[in-house]
């Protein structure tokens, strides 16, 4: 088990955001959290990454409680790609190198640079690597963020809307790379996403959140017209194409 979440509860001051959230993520698995805006998807990712502290419940990574780990230890195991990334006057190469921060004590080693270069090659970012990130488009910056999380060499990757500012080609490319990394290297990924069809194509498991609670969790079978109507309040048809379901709003 890479990630095991048991009975997480979280509130912002007086407002309950997450209630009794429990699910597991196995090695080589991509899990996507679905749900309408404001339901607590991002908050849940931040709890898993210890950016937020849940009021109750436990989060185990490789059977170890993350609340008992120091922050650097968490960062060595969990790579986080936030929705928004700041633009400093750094080259993409240096911005990605920052992902080695949990492993660096004083200065970078040749090995760190090699890992960064390999990630750049894997994400086909050779042309971008020496460009400054404050001159990049949102999509290019998103790729930099994903590469930065990759070079952390985490066991679990958390991606908050990883394709939100990407065009169709880059969306497919980033998700293909994430899936490839997950499948080849005993890593797991937890994503949040608004596009249900993209999620269906690239994910193994789903958690549907409604009003801060888990409405349904499981494989493709949890995506049904009823579940989508209950969670999003939208009527849809669910068709099958190439053995994979896809959702069409009515």
């Amino acid at each position: 088990m890479i990630l095991s979440i048991n009975g997480i509860e979280f509130n912002y001051r007086s407002r309950d955001v997450l209630n009794d959230i429990s699910f597991d993520v196995l090695p080589n698995e991509v899990l996507t959290i679905l749900g309408p805006n404001g339901v607590g998807k991002t908050t849940l990712l931040k709890c898993i990454n210890r950016i937020h502290h849940p009021r109750a419940g436990s989060i185990l990574i490789e059977e170890e409680d993350i609340m008992k780990m120091d922050l650097l230890e968490v960062a060595k195991r969990v790579g986080y790609v936030p929705q928004n990334c700041e633009k400093g006057r750094l080259t993409a190469y240096d911005a990605i190198l920052l992902g080695r921060r949990p492993h660096i004590t004083w200065n970078t080693s040749d090995n760190d640079l090699k890992i960064v270069n390999a990630a750049i090659k894997r994400l086909q970012m050779d042309d971008l690597s020496m460009r400054y990130i404050d001159e990049m488009s949102g999509g290019e910056l998103q790729k930099v963020s994903v590469a930065r999380a990759l070079v952390q060499e985490p066991k679990l990757m958390l991606l908050d809307e990883p394709t939100s500012s990407l065009d169709l080609k880059n969306q497919q490319e980033i998700l293909r790379i994430i899936r490839e990394v997950v499948k080849v290297h005993s890593v797991s990924a937890v994503m949040t996403m608004h596009d249900i069809n993209t999620a269906l194509r690239f994910s193994d498991k789903f958690v549907l959140l409604k009003e801060g609670k888990i409405y349904a969790a499981g494989g493709h079978e949890v995506i049904t017209p009823e579940s989508i109507r209950d969670v999003y309040g939208v009527d849809v048809h669910v068709e099958t194409f190439n053995n994979s379901p896809f959702v069409i709003p009515v």
């Binding site: 990454n49 950016i51 120091d70 922050l71 960062a75 986080y80 928004n84 400093g88 911005a95 949990p102």
Partner: peptide
């Protein structure tokens, strides 16, 4: 210096990289 570089990339990114 690495902490400041991380904070430059945004508080959330920095926290994700293990920076208090």
């Amino acid at each position: 210096m690495w902490n400041y570089n991380a904070i430059d990339a945004g508080d959330e990114t920095a926290k994700g990289l293990g920076v208090n």
